[in-house]
Amino acid sequence: MGMRWIYLDHSATTPVDPRVVEAMQPYFTEIYGNSASIHRFGRAAARALEESRRTVAEILGCHPTEVVFTGSGTESDNLALRGVAFAQRRAGRGHHLIVSSVEHHAVLNTARQLEEVFGFEVTYLPVDEYGMVDPDEVGRAIRKDTILISVMYANNEVGTIQPIAEIARIARARGIPFHTDAVQAGGMLDLDVNRLGVDLMTLSAHKFYGPKGVGVLYIRQGTPYLPVITGGGHERGRRAGTVNVAGIVGLATALRLAQESRESENARLRRLRDRLIQGILERVPEARLTGHPTERLPHHASFVFRGINGEELLLALDVEGIAASTGSACTSGRPEPSEVLLAMGLPHEWAVGSLRLTLGKSNTEEDIETVLEVLPRAVARLREMQAIEV
């Protein structure tokens, strides 16, 4: 009998819900037309596309025309920053952006390229020890030439939930478009764009049991935006490229299912998460929880352990049948500590020993107890090996 695997990396990606696979299936083999074609095959695909758009819009509390389908959360972040920045500069409104220092690289690296290649100026907001942005810092960073503010809804590495609505009020009062990367929040938190007050918002299907390779960019009507993927008139001219109808149907189905079960599933995950956090902090010496202790995603537990290498810990857990992450899956494989942990003020000797455990639908109390047996032994063994090498 094979090893029983425990998957605790749901912030990296989630398995596709079988109901989502079922909803997508006809659009691979039966309703396969190009949604831009006028024949019956194209019209059937277009109907599915617009029905999916309405489903997403209902969840976001916006008009369907404000929903743009993309190829990923990364693409959506890129389109948001570049699209608004180029449109604002072309209109002569300025060239200054504000982003937090703990954004996903899809935002940070885009902002850096806008700064280094295209001549924009960027302010990178500091965060506190929990990775949280102070809204007052946002207000102080605003200049006359500020054209966009981007602060993520919830952090992928440490799970901290940002005060988005408060930051949005500050941006709105100054007439500055506000974008939030809500990729980690998609299946977990309220996505009503009016309650949040955002002008642009990014989502990615594979974070809430949908398929990879499809995302959403919400763009509030009237927000300055210049298309940066050019070609045909797809997505009302805002994102060119033949539309991935099957993926979009999957995204809409997955988002609806996630939001329908959000409250009950969040309560279940929160209980498991709290047991995991309590057990690890009790059983592992020199361990710290990273991220905010209460304002954090319900499925997210992240830690640093002094004196070990996070990548080596991942391998040790993998041997024991536990799949986890050191933080951002997009940057795994590097021995250097993450920018997020350093921005939070963690010293190098702690920050290199990071671990992210993110729960999902398949996880049980038995999984938690197994981790609480395996992890302390793994950390102790790595520390012993480190002591011998020294």
Rank of each mutant, 00 (worst) to 15 (best):
C330E: 12
G186S: 14
N155F: 02
L341F: 10
T13C: 09
L314A: 04
E116L: 08
E157G: 03
S264Y: 04
L125F: 04
R172I: 05
P337N: 09
I142E: 05
R93L: 13
I147E: 05
V304Q: 12
R54A: 15
E265N: 11
M1C: 11
I164G: 08
T230F: 02
G175E: 08
T123D: 10
A185C: 11
Y225H: 11
S261P: 05
G250F: 02
S325A: 12
I161G: 07
R383T: 02
V102L: 06
I277M: 07
I229S: 14
W5C: 05
V107M: 02
G231E: 07
T223E: 10
L281M: 09
M188L: 15
R89D: 01
R270V: 00
A254T: 00
A205I: 06
E121Y: 00
E295V: 02
A246R: 04
R273K: 15
T146N: 05
V56E: 06
L125T: 03
H10E: 08
E265Q: 11
A171I: 01
E369G: 08
G33Y: 04
T13I: 07
S362N: 13
G353H: 05
G247C: 11
H234I: 01
P64K: 11
D17P: 02
V84P: 00
G353Y: 02
L255E: 08
T146E: 06
A168Q: 11
G2Q: 12
A254G: 09
D77S: 15
A380G: 11
T242C: 09
V379Q: 11
F178A: 10
A267I: 02
P26A: 12
A378W: 01
V228A: 07
R236Q: 10
H179P: 00
L357N: 10
T364Y: 04
T14A: 06
G231H: 08
G119E: 00
G333C: 03
E336R: 10
A36L: 13
L317F: 00
L375C: 10
S11N: 13
Y153G: 00
T70R: 09
A343I: 06
P135Y: 04
E66R: 04
I388V: 15
L346A: 07
N155A: 09
N309L: 15
V390K: 15
P335F: 01
H10M: 05
E263P: 01
T242A: 13
E66P: 03
A111G: 05
E58H: 08
L108C: 01
L148G: 07
G71H: 12
I147P: 01
V99M: 07
E389R: 15
E282N: 13
A80V: 05
N363Y: 03
A165V: 04
A351T: 03
A329Q: 06
R377L: 14
F178R: 09
